[in-house]
């Protein structure tokens, strides 16, 4: 797997684009199983995700959390670590944002909203520091620990949302956050909210950190070759811990955006695996903020179009989940994807 592309070239675009096309082609087999026409079904998917301004707004809304989780995974990748715990980090960030959001009445918006956002970020960042520290100080593989911490986060938030912070309604959810903590809807009636502006800022900030600061240079150096970095006077453990913290903070923003901008409250197990789809987004986006932005829009469109396809045709929305899985596999197997291309050319 290529973790370390620093910028895009047309060659780098080849594998992602071909992977998406191949995955859609393979997905058409499943559409045929259902007895629908793949061309017609994909037409619905495309029109419903990009066909009108309103549909585009919905697509962007679905893409917003994926920009955060995609960048979270990409950021850790840049330091040579696999953060498979974005899902847990976003839950922790979401519950903390919700708690702050329901707690302080009569706080001015200018204080309440940033407080909720920053508290969520901090919580997710600290959550991710744990596997970061265990990796840096004890050499424990971060993959297993981030997986384990996902489950701890699920059960912890299950407890909080059914126990101390259970709202007034029967359902396992908190009360609605005060309007002073809500991210404004910017294109009603869709649920697109100012969280997307936050995502754009985050994309810019991540780009600047990674390529315009000494810290970013060190993080990438550690990701490329930890031994060489250490010899060059860069602290591997310090950068690993830092990268995981930033990664966790980014992931938690996805949960913050869902709570403060979309649902208005924390709902038990609300996330449709946003953290895991973030892995797909990071891979497809080649771990670059700009790539992540476009990959997130693609996956947001798949989800928007998939829901419409479910409504308007016999094709279940889970088709897009299957397609997502195939995209991950094909992008990661770039040797296979390139090989297929070469074979096609020689025929």
């Amino acid at each position: 797997m290529e973790l370390q592309q620093s910028s895009y070239s047309s060659r780098d675009l080849l594998v992602p684009v071909v992977s998406v096309i191949l995955a859609l082609l393979a997905g058409s087999v499943f559409i045929l199983i259902v007895g629908e026409n793949p061309v017609a079904a994909y037409r619905v998917l495309f029109v419903e995700s990009f066909g009108s301004v309103r549909n585009i707004a919905t697509t962007l809304q679905r893409a917003t959390p994926l920009m955060f989780t995609g960048m979270a995974v990409a950021f850790a990748f840049r330091c040579g670590m696999f953060n498979i715990g974005a899902e847990g980090q976003l839950y922790v960030g979401a519950i903390v944002a919700a708690i702050v959001g329901v707690s302080f009445a009569n706080l001015p918006r200018l204080i309440h909203l940033p407080l909720a956002v920053l508290a969520g970020m901090a919580a997710g960042g600290v959550w991710a520091l744990v596997p970061g520290i265990l990796k840096a100080k004890l050499g424990v593989h971060e993959v297993i620990n981030t997986i384990m911490m996902n489950f701890v986060a699920y059960y912890l938030t299950d407890y909080l949302v059914t126990g101390p912070f259970h709202g007034g309604r029967w359902a396992p959810e908190t009360d609605r956050v005060f309007p002073t903590a809500a991210l404004a809807r910017i294109f009603p009636p869709t649920r697109l909210n100012s969280g997307i502006l936050l995502a754009l800022v985050a994309i810019g900030v991540v780009y600047v950190i990674l390529w315009k600061t000494r810290t970013g240079y060190e993080i990438r150096a550690v990701g490329l070759n930890p031994t060489a970095a250490e010899y060059g006077g860069i602290s591997v453990s310090r950068n690993m811990i830092l990268a995981m913290g930033i990664s966790g903070a980014l992931a938690s923003l996805a949960g913050v955006e869902q709570v403060l901008g979309v649902h208005g409250r924390f709902i038990q197990r609300f996330s449709p695996e946003l953290g895991f789809v973030g892995i797909a987004v990071a891979l497809l986006g080649k771990n670059h903020p700009v790539g992540v932005f476009f990959a997130a829009i693609l996956f947001g469109a798949l989800r928007t179009g998939g829901a419409a396809m479910d409504r308007l045709t016999d094709v279940p929305r889970e088709l897009v989940v299957i397609i997502q899985a195939m995209i991950i596999m094909l992008v990661a197997a770039d040797e296979l994807t390139r090989g297929l291309l070469r074979r096609r050319r020689t025929v």
Partner: peptide, 24 residues
């Protein structure tokens, strides 16, 4: 393929595949 990536893809595939087939 990175083994963790492949495993992740399989997990996501299984979720989609089983629900897709159950409904179909």
């Amino acid at each position: 393929v990175d083994q963790v990536v492949s495993g992740t893809a399989i997990n996501i595939f299984a979720v989609g595949f089983t629900v897709f087939m159950l409904r179909t």
